[in-house]
Write a protein that binds this DNA or RNA. Structure first.
Lengths: 205, 205
DNA sequence: GTCTATAGGGCGATAGAC
DNA sequence: GTCTATCGCCCTATAGAC
């Protein structure tokens, strides 16, 4: 779990082949370390590869670009959210389906210390913020797709998905920056309550 | 206005100096043309510069990167929205302040044909989508800031800003893809109505 | 694995405007 | 003289092609 065991030779050598196992994991950990230590732009793909004990070329075989290495977890997150949506009873209102899914994933997915570290790296670099926004946008689009498959029409599906993802973002921010004792469900619940108060009036003019 | 007058020698030669005037405008138009003709990735900065009659290096003096050339209008848009918010009476509810601002900018800013062309380029390329998302995110953050200056607390300010920007996005999408006769205010109004129906319930479980 | 085009930054030189 | 726009050439890292 900790980021300092990258070079620990892996205890139970599993009939180890020509190379150390888990090149992917070693690259991901090496990248997180280096981005933390000296910043994203000041780190080259070659340096990450060297620390992980592979060639630069291997880095780009696992990750489409330098940024992507920080966003593998997003795929996982998305899969879980979509799976949760699929299990939700048909009679639940669209937004509530999405919010319920966001509520469930929290406990499963996140390690708070890791999340804080990763968030610090991302907030220090616009290029990484762009990638994060794209991931959220992709998540929102796929959630909207899942709602449509449940028979929700447009633009309600997209609006419900966007709303749910906004709640996720703000709840997550709060979960990271707030007191460690405050749990995920609480962050989501409070954010929903706040959101209910910002419903726009119907424009007259 | 048309994109084909890049090479027109500029009618009123203003005691023209060493170079043709408006290198910035020529670069922006050349980029839009080339991205349209052969796609964003298939266009090099050198080609844009050559069509505009400057060197590649000059392109990067005006635009931080190849993508930025498509997003100069976003700054303008943001300025107008913030100015409109500043003029709105104090007693209007936060979300309504934002929605009203979104409602106003439409007529002022957009040329529909240009918007459609630009949207086609962006939707064909993930890197451009990332940049667009970042611009919206920046807009949302600055709108939230403007609300805070009006005395709105967090997280309401951020939620109202996010909500307003979501309405803008979806309204804009509709304005571009729908019938040309449907005007901006109508797109925004209808989107707000739809949004009012997706308010999340309070979570019990 | 190797090779290469492109992005994009650094910096001094140059030619005008004022 | 100063200021500003542009050039031109050098550089490295990314990321795709082969």
């Amino acid at each position: 779990m900790s980021a300092t065991d990258i070079n620990s030779k892996d205890r139970r050598l599993p009939l180890m082949g020509r190379w150390l196992p888990d090149a992917h994991g070693r690259l991901a950990r090496a990248a997180l370390e280096l981005y933390s230590e000296r910043g994203f732009e000041q780190t080259t793909a070659l340096e990450i590869a060297e620390r992980a004990g592979v060639t630069e070329r291997t880095f780009f075989r696992y990750f489409a670009d330098k940024r992507e290495v920080l966003f593998q977890g997003s795929q996982e997150l998305q899969r879980i959210i979509l799976a949760t949506i699929a299990e939700t009873p048909e009679d639940v209102r669209p937004v509530d389906v999405v919010i319920a899914a966001m509520n469930k994933v929290g406990g499963l997915v996140f390690d708070r210390a890791h999340s804080i570290r990763r968030a610090a790296i991302i907030s220090a670099n616009p290029a990484l913020q762009e990638r994060e926004l794209l991931k959220f946008s992709t998540l929102s689009a796929s959630v909207a797709g899942a709602l449509r498959e449940r028979g929700v029409a447009e633009p309600s599906a997209t609006l419900a998905a966007e709303t749910g993802v906004t709640v996720f973002k703000i709840g997550f921010e709060r979960w990271i920056t707030g007191t460690p004792s405050e749990d995920w469900a609480e962050c989501i619940r409070d954010t929903v309550c706040q959101l209910r108060e910002v419903t726009p009036s119907i424009i007259v003019g």
